[in-house]
Amino acid sequence: MKKIQEEKIIFENELSFKSSFPSLRNYFFWHYHPELELVYIEAPHGIRNVGKHISNFTESDLILIGPNIPHLNFDYGIKTHYYQAVIQMKTSLVDVLMDTPECNKIKELLERSYLGLSFKGKTKKEVARRIKDFKSERKLDGLLDLIKIFQILAESNEFDVLNTDDMRVRLCFHDKIRMEIIYNYVHENYHNKLNVHEIAQAVNLTTSAFCRYFKKQTNLTFTNFANSYRISMAKIFLLQNISVSEVCYQVGFNSISYFSTLFKKLVGKTPMDFKSK
């Protein structure tokens, strides 16, 4: 079993922030770091997991992650083309912004970031545009652009709070090890009939204790999570010119009508409509 990893972020000389375009789609990377992180990703779908929060995103996602919050890389498992940009800030820069009176709104934003924030609407579109134009090598100009991005986020009410509890590193590492085992099990077996007794045994819990534990960690039942993951995988296969019926069985469903009903419930359109669009 792997323990959650502390990511060591290396900054260039004379820079207190870093922008990068990581590609870790085949790597299950549970990690944390003391630096603040802003992530923007464009993909047909993906898994958003910050602290104890687990959910799916579609088309794009803009996430602010506070210092030392365990999170999974947002491109994990994505098989299609995607764009991902990550901006990370040294703790010293965060401290300066927190102590600057002109940045009071940003200070409030940073104080909320330990819960994990997901932005949407016009805010996401505007910040996405600025992130794509962002040039960290411009140093001072880049810093000013970054402050402007955070000012836009700070003045927005278009966001969801992902956690209700403080998710910083004091979150029990053992929980993260268990969740990694569960994720890997679902990822490797979603096309088969998932056995809740088997996964409960793998994490050393009784079946009833596992069900309670998983619901407490994710606010989802294991069945709902597994079905959501299957539908996410179905989106990938539908984009690969595979028929709806083939996809249905390929992601572990035995009934095309149930698959179609669940797909529409979670995605908002039928598999055929999604495939056509």
Rank of each mutant, 00 (worst) to 15 (best):
F28A: 15
S19F: 07
I47W: 11
F17T: 02
T58E: 10
I41S: 06
F29K: 13
H45P: 00
S23C: 12
G46C: 08
K52G: 08
I47L: 06
K18W: 03
I41D: 04
I54H: 08
L62F: 04
P22R: 05
N26H: 09
L38A: 09
P67V: 05
G66I: 02
V50C: 03
V39C: 11
D61G: 08
H31M: 07
P67Y: 02
S23Q: 14
G51W: 03
T58A: 09
I65L: 04
P67H: 06
N26F: 06
N49P: 01
F21G: 10
S23T: 08
L36A: 02
L24W: 09
P67F: 02
F29T: 01
I47A: 01
L64T: 02
E42S: 13
N56F: 11
S60C: 10
H31F: 03
F21W: 08
N56C: 09
G66F: 01
L15F: 07
P67G: 07
K52Q: 12
P67W: 01
K52D: 14
F21Y: 13
H53R: 13
N26Q: 12
F28L: 15
N26W: 13
K18M: 12
W30A: 07
S23M: 04
Y40K: 03
S23H: 12
I54K: 11
G46W: 04
H53F: 14
N56S: 15
N56A: 11
I47N: 01
K18E: 13
L15E: 02
R48G: 05
G46L: 10
N26G: 12
F17A: 04
G66C: 04
S19D: 14
L24V: 05
S55H: 10
L36C: 01
R48E: 09
L24P: 01
L36T: 07
F57V: 05
R25K: 12
I65D: 02
S19M: 15
W30F: 14
E35Q: 15
I41Q: 09
P22F: 03
R25M: 04
R25F: 12
I65C: 03
S19W: 06
S55M: 05
G66Q: 00
H53P: 01
S23A: 12
N56M: 15
E35L: 07
N49R: 09
E37K: 14
I54R: 12
I54Y: 06
F28M: 09
L62N: 06
K52R: 07
E35M: 08
N49I: 06
H53D: 09
Y40S: 10
L38R: 00
